[in-house]
Design a binder for these strands. Structure first.
Length: 278
DNA sequence: ACGAGGTCCTGCGAGC
DNA sequence: TGCTCGCAGGACCTCG
């Protein structure tokens, strides 16, 4: 679930407690989230190095250590990284994947119900090679409508699928793709090469607006997502289309529809506002 | 270059 | 109550 706003919220919450610190007693409970790295190497890196920076790139949490190594966490569907104190509750015990102590009775916990998330340990070269394949950050200052337009070139896939393609632009997943397309009044199934200049410009604006608003609301909690301090986000109460199939459109009152025709993912839209032929 | 579909996982609600 | 099925925020792969 976590998309850009959720990952950004977690990183902002955790950075003050983690940067400049080293972790103690790291423990790995489930090993199938590890990709290229072995448990031994991961735990060794956590044990022996201070955290010098924590930031977000795309939907990844990047923890830079005081070597050229970084621990890269991709939360995917149900991963969450948070600080916990006191006795771990049942859920934590059941779903924790990795944890480490940061002192004063506080621990850093990576929990993941479905364990589709991934943890990697990459040196600078491997990280650069990886991140170069990803698209630009939609909230960066350099990201302008022109760059967005260029990124959408050369494909006939549905605009919703292109928007979620992390090689074109990063950070947008199913929830915010639905929201941005609705807000920009664009048919999610429209071929990307058929979007006119004005539609692309509206989409650019709405992608940025919805991501910023979701960050302000500390993310969308449908089920598993928690902020870095273990709380629920609040954007789920502000969603206009996602999860509202069968309910009235907030703008025109038409009944919102849900389809799985685009890439097999739930797409909810308004026939009238998004100009879709029945 | 594209769409379709499978894969990694567990939980949950619907339907019987 | 208990079962089976399909679906859930993501990203990767193969096949035709």
């Amino acid at each position: 679930m976590p998309e850009l706003p959720e990952v950004e919220t977690i990183v902002r919450d955790l950075a003050p407690s983690l940067v400049g610190r080293s972790l103690k007693n790291p423990r790995l409970f489930k090993r199938n989230v590890l990709r290229e790295v072995t448990p031994r190497r991961l735990l060794g890196a956590l044990r022996n190095h201070k955290i010098v920076d924590l930031h977000r790139r795309a939907k990844h949490i990047v923890m830079l250590l005081d070597s050229d190594l970084r621990i890269v966490i991709q939360l995917r569907m149900s991963g969450t990284l948070l600080l916990a104190r006191g006795k771990p509750d049942q859920d934590e015990q059941r779903y924790r994947v990795l944890q480490a102590e940061i002192g004063r009775g506080t621990r850093l916990v990576y929990r993941d119900v479905r364990r589709l998330g991934t943890i990697n340990l990459l040196d600078e070269k491997a990280w650069n090679a990886y991140t170069e394949r990803l698209g630009p950050e939609p909230l960066s200052e350099e990201f302008d409508p022109d760059q967005f337009s260029k990124r959408l070139r050369g494909t006939k896939v549905a605009i919703k699928k292109a928007l979620m393609d992390q090689r074109r632009v990063v950070g947008v997943g199913n929830i915010y793709a639905n929201e941005a397309l609705y807000r920009a009044r664009i048919d999610p199934s429209l071929r990307t090469d058929k979007l006119n200049r004005s539609a692309k410009h509206r989409l650019y604006e709405e992608v940025r607006a919805v991501l910023n608003e979701a960050i302000d609301a500390r993310g969308t909690t449908l089920k598993d997502y928690r902020t870095g301090t273990g709380e629920r986000g609040s954007f789920q109460g502000i969603l206009q289309v996602y999860g509202r199939g069968g309910e009235p459109c907030l703008a025109c009152g038409s009944t919102l529809a849900t389809t799985h025709a685009i890439d097999g993912r739930a797409t909810t839209f308004c026939w009238r506002c998004q100009g879709i032929k029945r």
